[in-house]
């Protein structure tokens, strides 16, 4: 909070430095000046995150995520919540990347049981861990509360269930609740903190909350400054400032 106030008052005093790299012998033509992050008014709304229409998740999954994501990173006095930050949009888009399809994971079998020190040894790629996990979670809730799914429960009950899943205490048929929870939490955090270009972190709200200058990537003038907070607010990959 105090960081934000400070940064706004100092923003006009200090301009972002733009470093022009040295040429490399024999490759001079390949070098061009780095593009500065162009100023734009980032406080202008970027559309309502809730208007996003999912293309990966179905309606049931969307309902689960709408509730779970809000419990994991709620709106509060510390900063924006995951929902208003667009984390749902991030999740839907991220599940459609090669990464979520297991593109850089070794996916061949056999799938043997191993000690936790060897990591996940199952055959589900990330997007399937999330999908199978949601279905299993809702199935579990329905078995305990006929006619209801996770999204129908009150916040306290949802939190208690997520805590139980985090510890692996919920027993699902198709997937470990702990595995599902840890992957979901990682993705929610990724969406909350990654550059807005990926769909979350609208208006760089998460960066403002923690005081991260974002994608400035140029701090030589601040390495040895000790007595005051970094003065400029964040900038994102597209050059917007906040």
């Amino acid at each position: 909070m105090s960081d934000d106030t400070q940064s706004r008052s100092r923003r006009s005093l200090i301009k972002s430095m733009v470093f022009i790299p040295m040429g490399v012998a024999g490759a001079a033509g390949a070098v061009r000046a780095l593009q500065p992050a162009h100023a734009a008014d980032a406080n202008a709304p970027e559309g309502k995150p809730n208007d996003y229409i999912p293309s990966f998740f179905n309606a049931n999954e969307w309902k689960f995520l709408g509730a779970a994501v809000d419990r994991l990173i709620p709106h509060d006095e510390h900063g924006p919540g995951a929902i208003e930050s667009g984390v749902l949009e991030f999740l839907d888009r991220h599940m459609q990347t090669p990464y979520a399809a297991g593109d850089i994971w070794y996916m061949q079998g056999p799938y043997l049981k191993a000690a936790p020190e060897f990591g996940y040894q199952g055959k589900l790629a990330l997007r399937d861990i999330i999908r199978v996990g949601i279905r299993a979670f809702d199935g579990y809730v329905s078995s305990q509360n006929p006619g209801k799914v996770f999204g129908d429960l009150d916040k306290k009950a949802q939190e208690d269930l997520l805590k139980a899943a985090e510890k692996g205490e919920l027993k699902f048929e198709d997937i470990s609740s702990k595995l599902f929870f840890s992957n979901l939490l990682t993705e929610v955090r990724n969406g909350y903190f990654a550059d807005p270009k990926h769909g979350g972190n609208k208006n760089m709200g998460a960066w403002k909350m923690i005081g991260y200058p974002g994608m400035r990537a140029d701090y030589l003038d601040w390495v040895e400054v000790r007595d005051k907070p970094y003065p400029i607010g964040p900038v994102d990959l597209s050059g917007r400032r906040a």
Binding site: A30, L34, Y99, D103, I104, Y106, N190, H198, A217, L237
Partner: peptide, 28 residues
């Protein structure tokens, strides 16, 4: 090479660099 592969600003995308491991080997 530095240009264009490590050019600012795209290279400093944490999701691509540290989650998608864009510059590391694919374990697949």
């Amino acid at each position: 090479d530095t240009q264009p592969d490590f050019a600012y600003p795209r290279v400093v995308d944490e999701l691509e660099g540290s989650v998608h491991r864009k510059y590391l080997q694919s374990l697949a």
